[in-house]
Amino acid sequence: MAEPRYLRRFGAVERAQHLALFVSFLGLAATGLPLFFSDAVWARPMAQIVGGFAVTGILHRTFATLLIGVFVFHVARIFSRLLRGEGGMLWGPRSLVPQPRDIRDLWAHLRWFVWRGPKPAFGRYTYWEKFDYWAVFWGMVIIGGSGLMLWFPEFFALFLPGWVFNVALLVHGEEALLAVGFIVTIHFFNSHMRPHKFPMDLTMFTGVVREDEYARERPLDYAVLQSSGLEAHLAPPPDPGLVRRARLVGGVAIAVGVSLFVLIVVASLTR
């Protein structure tokens, strides 16, 4: 049997963004959850472990700055790519923008779940991946915006009424809870832990995916790549050292995320 061939799916910049995104995200969650669940049994010890009041506050704001930096960079890069005339980003089979086809894919996928139809043929980005992506977008605006209000209340109160800060605190916490819960259950499962991917899909870490796997999972995009010249998208196999590092970093991230989720469950059940 021939050596498997690999396709490039994510560039170094995308992978770096994902890395910075989940490091800052987990850091924000670890330093923010004790405050949100301040009445939980683990809250006080955990707040001490992550550095006490002053250090926790500094860490939370440092991770927030990193995450906002990633977000601003990401949006700026999209605009720059659009300005350079890159096509297909805003619509079409290779776009991340939700389209009518995604509704049909969701419906077909649900039917496949219950043995009522064939598995739908997905394109470059599936509907659940698009949901993940736009959920982060929405979360960035909501959590980031409310977080900045809580960070600089005196500035924002120059033009916002005080009750906005009541809403900001509530929304910041609830939306963060949604984000953490979603990432460590739904995203971890969809992208890493479901039977075909278990324990981890390393594509977002190594940037490459096996050709046969891609053709099976995303036949529509595989056809697009074939028609536009598959050779241009071929990549060398991932470096074994990179794979080891990716397993380690990804494994730690999953362990941290699952631990945070256990804390959330404990706090919710003992409230």
Partner: peptide, 21 residues
Amino acid sequence: LLAGVFAFFGAHTLLWFVRER
């Protein structure tokens, strides 16, 4: 929002797991 997202994706995930296994 929380109830909706977790209810929908919870069911989605569960069904998917069973089917894919």
